[in-house]
Design a protein around this nucleic acid. Structure first.
Lengths: 199, 199, 199, 199
DNA sequence: TATGAATGAGGGTTCATTCAT
DNA sequence: CATGAATGAACCCTCATTCAT
């Protein structure tokens, strides 16, 4: 019988969803565990059956949400048959930006929290069964062009930070321009960055 | 004699310094006013003689510190006689990066808090007697080249966000490379970005 | 078994009793919530599980205590079979005065706080399940004599205020005379007031 | 030279006036000494040059204000040539009620605070040079009729409390009737009370 | 598992009072 | 006399965490 299991999962998911909504709406510091359990319609004590603390649920959320986002982009890319590294990266970036533009709450959450530290850990750390295998993916992608790219990690880092930083305001507030206005410039800049790293 | 005035200034500065240290070390949310007054060696009530709340002292700090940082960079630049826009911007960026590399606490504080929203407001808002006149400066700098730059605001925005985002980890953690390793790539990328905006 | 319910009721009553004692002893303004929880032998936070603020517990106390006092007097009166309005009112007043003389703490609390505004609201407001139904009672009592009384509300008001004001010092301090010395004069005066309102 | 003296008195009066305004507007407990000095446009420390505490200025105000009120009523009465005790008392009461109706702030202040305890002390205590001589006056007034009045103090007490209690709501809120509607009933009741005390 | 009553440390803030100027 | 900066105790209230049910 799966009923008990489902019920358990249901409580946990209620908590995760409630936490996500509240973290994006008020930030982690202004969100209390009472808030979360109240929104999840679950007793206060129940929280501690699934998570150790506010920060525990927080990191699990980042992991889960970013894994989902990158996974989808990767799957979409694999369907296309892109040859050059430039094309691949631009495709991934574009796919992610579009996803985030459609889901600003996710953007708000990811953008503030998806630090390079996290990214790095995901790429180099032990692959996690729950989450997307960044490591495997990026190694494959870059290997093909590894020979021609000087300091590939710096390149990736620069692009990730640039995209993250510029898109945040553009999508959420249209500042200093809408994301559609920004995109051509941004993609031109990304291409320049990749080219700057070619030996 | 200005004994009283000096004493007051001293208390205010103690509070500002304590707040700065704590904000960079623990973040604003985890810093309590008790923490601040304790570190400033001042009674709790004294805090409220100078600031309305934690957020009041916070905004005053951002304003003050960023004003100082940009002001110094600007003064240094004016001593050099640089002709091209590329040279000017690279000079400013380099000056600021060097300053921040020497003062990681300042970097930590500025980087997390100096949003584009703030920058924009400083550039377009009413000039403040206390703080550096961003507006006057950037208008002058860009005016000379305005005709040849497409969407100068997007260009500036992109550069500011790129520098801010990439330097943060590089300086503080040497990730994914030290700032000195990063610099040549970064400056090449900035030059590309500027060039991409030239008509 | 109702163990949990009983425990909760016990805590709530501890708080109500402690608050009552302190309000009569020091007044509401000089009573802190710390005082109340300390006297109730309950943690500070517990207070907020039952009451929203100091004023919340205060109004609930007034409501409760006055309801009890008037309810008892009414019940006693109904056992007697008094015919005239004068007799009824004197009986009620006497019963209440005796009760308050036996319980000076209650007098102290009620007398300071049972304003006409409150009385009026109790008489005209929506009947509350928890508290005594003033409305039903006084309407019944006065209806029988309504035809013969000019301005019954003014009459009632005058009597309530007179009794309240004169008994306070008499009972608590024997000033300017003990309540027993005062009574015959007071009841003669009340009879005169009622008669003055007869058409 | 009177300048220094005037200035001193000026500060003291500013404080008294500010305190009076604030006490009537917010009550003594919700009024802080900062409030008072701020409204009086005087430095905080100056308060302590003239008064020992919030309660000190409070009692001085009651003394002063009630003295003024009763003094005026007495002076007015002496101009009339009233013979009976009933006429005298009704005249005094009417004069005071009219004064208070014209000055609701004074009513608010006096009514809440002019307890019988205070009245008693004023009547029996040592005459104060600053304030009206209640003692001398009431002894004279009652002496003439002393022989014919049983328990004159109880009578006075009853009237004072009745007037105080009934007029407060009537003047300030028109509840349960305006003061003008109430007056005929009240004066009839007062006459009854006096008559009830005649041997 | 699931609950929610209970806790008490710690948060921000106010304010009577003092004292060097 | 007059000032107002400085103090720190005490205020109300929130909340993460525990635990008996």
């Amino acid at each position: 019988m799966h009923k008990l299991y489902d019920k358990k999962q249901h409580k946990k998911n209620s908590l995760l969803n409630a936490a996500f909504d509240l973290f994006t709406a008020k930030g982690i510091e202004k969100t209390s565990i009472s808030d979360i359990t109240l929104n999840a319609k679950v007793a206060k004590g129940t929280f501690y059956l699934y998570f150790k603390s506010k920060y525990d649920i927080y990191y699990k959320l980042i992991s889960h949400k970013s894994s989902e986002l990158f996974g989808k982009a990767t799957q979409a890319m694999e369907k296309e048959h892109l040859r050059s590294l430039n094309e691949k990266i631009i495709f991934l970036v574009d796919h992610i930006i579009n996803e985030l533009a459609r889901n600003p709450k996710l953007l708000k959450f990811i953008s503030k929290n998806l630090s390079w530290a996290f990214f790095k850990e995901a790429v180099t750390g032990t692959p996690d069964s729950d989450n997307f295998d960044f490591q495997g993916f990026y190694l494959t992608m870059l290997k093909e062009d590894a020979a021609t790219i000087e300091e590939p990690e710096i390149m990736l880092y620069t692009i990730v930070e640039l995209v993250n930083a510029t898109c945040h305001n553009a999508i959420l507030y249209g500042e200093p321009a809408t994301i559609d206005t920004l995109k051509p410039f941004l993609y031109r800049d990304i291409n320049s960055i990749i080219d700057n790293h070619k030996v």
